[in-house]
């Protein structure tokens, strides 16, 4: 008799726990759907790797505009090369910065909600105050662009200058600084924006989409360079 009751209660506990898990997942799913529908503005960036000359004007401007301390950076231009025979050599440049994913792996793992997706701009940001520095988001970012800001001790990354230039009604610092106009910034939801026009007209790619990240940084592939197998 006693044993039966014990087992019954155990079963009840198990099912209660199961229900809790399922409801948790349900919440997660409903949250994801909400984000999808509510946003009417989604900022995106295009990096034209053909126009980029690797001068680092963007990363220097970023550091100044956002007060990024030395030793860490929100934006870097990675250089690959040289390819070809001297003197006809060339390099390939790729932008290393937050890809502003719609799949947002960093937001999904953040235990406190310090990493969040701003529904009015589609920008993924960090709430410095809420961040406790568990490093989970840094490990979860497939692009490995997050870092701990040595001053605030919070996770930090590119937010399209949401708190600095966008507030002043300007374009992100990197876009303004680029001498070759390799960067295009704008709203994906606006059919007449420059980003939409460029994306429609030019073949482009995004990095690591196979991980379900749906990034909002688009790249126009360098015509020159090595063919990789």
């Amino acid at each position: 008799m006693k044993k039966e009751r014990r087992q019954f209660i155990k079963g009840a506990c198990a099912s209660a726990f199961g229900v809790a898990c399922v409801s948790g997942l349900g919440i997660a799913k409903s949250n994801a759907h909400k984000d999808k529908n509510e946003t009417n503005c989604k900022y995106a960036l295009i990096h034209d790797e053909n126009k980029c000359i690797g001068c680092d004007a963007c990363s220097v401007a970023c550091r100044e505009a956002n007060d990024v301390p030395d030793g860490v950076s929100r934006l870097e231009i990675e250089r690959e090369g040289p390819f070809g025979e001297y003197p006809n050599q060339f390099y390939r440049f790729t932008r290393k910065s937050c890809q502003q994913c719609e799949g947002k792996p960093c937001v999904n793992v953040c235990p406190t909600g310090a990493a969040y997706h701003d529904p009015s701009t589609g920008i993924v940001s960090v709430d410095e105050w809420k961040c406790v520095g568990c490093l989970y988001c840094i490990a979860a970012c497939p692009y490995q662009i997050r870092f701990i800001n040595p001053v605030t001790k919070a996770a930090d990354k590119c937010d399209f200058c949401k708190e600095t230039r966008l507030k002043e009604g300007r374009q992100p610092a990197c876009v303004e600084a680029c001498p070759t106009k390799a960067l295009t910034f704008g709203d994906l939801k606006d059919p007449h924006s420059q980003v939409v026009e460029v994306l429609k007209a030019t073949p482009n790619y995004r990095s690591k989409t196979e991980l379900g990240t749906r990034p909002k940084v688009f790249r126009i592939a360098s015509q020159e360079g090595e063919i990789k197998l």
Partner: peptide, 24 residues
Amino acid sequence: LTKPFDFWKILVFYNPTSVMSIGV
């Protein structure tokens, strides 16, 4: 943690999609 004195925030704020949050 990089901010050990802020650990209480993990106990106050929850994120149902975070394994760490559920784990806590």
